[in-house]
Simulated assay, not measured.
Amino acid sequence: MKAKSKDSGDILWGCRDIASAINRTPAQTFHMLVKKQIPASKVGAIWVASRRRLLAHLAGEVVK
C-alpha cells in the first residue's frame, strides 16, 4: 500500500507550512497573517494560503 503524500499541491495548510514556504519562523508568519500582510484566510481555526499567490505577493507581482 502506498503512503499518502503530505504534498497538497498549491495549498499550504497551517502557519508552519506557510512559514516554511516563505522562509520565516512560525511566529513571524503568524504576525503577518493576523495583520493581513500576506494573502491567506482561515478555514475553521487553520490558516490556509495558496503557495503561488503567496510567493507572487511577496515578489510584488499581481496575480489574478
Results as ranks from 00 to 15, higher is better:
residue 56 A to F: 05
residue 50 S to T: 13
residue 10 D to Y: 01
residue 34 V to A: 05
residue 34 V to E: 12
residue 41 S to V: 12
residue 2 K to T: 13
residue 19 A to E: 02
residue 37 Q to T: 07
residue 37 Q to E: 13
residue 23 N to P: 12
residue 16 R to Y: 09
residue 26 P to C: 13
residue 55 L to D: 01
residue 49 A to T: 05
residue 49 A to W: 00
residue 19 A to G: 02
residue 30 F to V: 00
residue 28 Q to C: 07
residue 62 V to W: 08
residue 60 G to V: 05
residue 64 K to P: 13
residue 28 Q to F: 13
residue 52 R to S: 13
residue 5 S to H: 13
residue 33 L to D: 00
residue 37 Q to N: 10
residue 5 S to V: 14
residue 32 M to A: 01
residue 50 S to H: 04
residue 43 V to D: 02
residue 57 H to P: 11
residue 8 S to I: 04
residue 6 K to S: 06
residue 36 K to R: 05
residue 63 V to G: 02
residue 19 A to W: 09
residue 58 L to N: 04
residue 64 K to M: 12
residue 37 Q to M: 13
residue 1 M to D: 07
residue 59 A to T: 08
residue 31 H to G: 06
residue 8 S to C: 06
residue 63 V to M: 02
residue 1 M to P: 12
residue 22 I to W: 03
residue 26 P to T: 07
residue 63 V to N: 02
residue 45 A to K: 15
residue 48 V to A: 06
residue 52 R to Y: 03
residue 16 R to A: 06
residue 41 S to M: 10
residue 62 V to Q: 11
residue 62 V to F: 11
residue 46 I to M: 10
residue 39 P to Q: 01
residue 48 V to P: 06
residue 35 K to M: 09
residue 4 K to G: 15
residue 44 G to L: 07
residue 17 D to C: 10
residue 3 A to P: 09
residue 16 R to S: 06
residue 57 H to S: 13
residue 44 G to D: 00
residue 11 I to A: 09
residue 22 I to N: 02
residue 18 I to K: 09
residue 29 T to D: 05
residue 29 T to Y: 10
residue 44 G to P: 05
residue 32 M to E: 01
residue 45 A to G: 11
residue 30 F to N: 00
residue 6 K to W: 08
residue 12 L to K: 03
residue 50 S to I: 11
residue 26 P to M: 14
residue 8 S to V: 05
residue 39 P to F: 00
residue 21 A to P: 03
residue 38 I to F: 05
residue 58 L to D: 03
residue 5 S to M: 13
residue 46 I to R: 15
residue 22 I to D: 01
residue 26 P to Q: 14
residue 27 A to P: 08
residue 39 P to L: 01
residue 62 V to M: 08
residue 18 I to W: 07
residue 46 I to S: 08
residue 53 R to H: 11
residue 57 H to R: 12
residue 31 H to N: 12
residue 14 G to C: 05
